[in-house]
């Protein structure tokens, strides 16, 4: 808990310090390396996921987040797709 607070304070005060930049950049690049996928592939997957989800839901494309994360050597894909509204009667129209 106390460590968390210090971590947060450090990340405010140390935002410009190169140590934190290095660690953040490494976290991202290692997650991608471990997943073994290239950025184009991710981009393509992202577009296809948007396509599928948009058929059923009205999502906020501007606000969405799509990332590969890694914790304790387990890599996961997480997509955060904010919903504007649920499309009604969609199935009848198409």
């Amino acid at each position: 808990m106390f460590k968390d607070i210090i971590g947060t304070i450090n990340s405010w005060t140390g935002a410009k310090k190169s140590r934190y930049r290095a660690k953040n950049r490494l976290q991202l690049v290692l997650a991608h390396d471990r997943a073994g996928v290239n950025p184009e592939l991710i981009q393509k997957m992202r577009q296809e996921i948007i396509e599928v989800v948009s058929r059923y839901l009205d999502i906020d494309v501007e606000e969405m987040e799509f990332s590969i994360q890694s914790n304790d050597r387990i890599t996961s894909l997480s997509a955060n797709l904010p919903i504007k509204k649920i499309k009604r009667g969609n199935t009848k129209e198409t």
């Binding site: 140390g14 310090k17 190169s18 140590r19 290095a22 660690k23 490494l26 304790d72 050597r73």
Partner: peptide, 18 residues
Amino acid sequence: MVQMDEMISVEDIMDLLV
């Protein structure tokens, strides 16, 4: 350099490489 937050620490490396 670690003390000045200008180098990643051993703990940082252990966090990353596990």
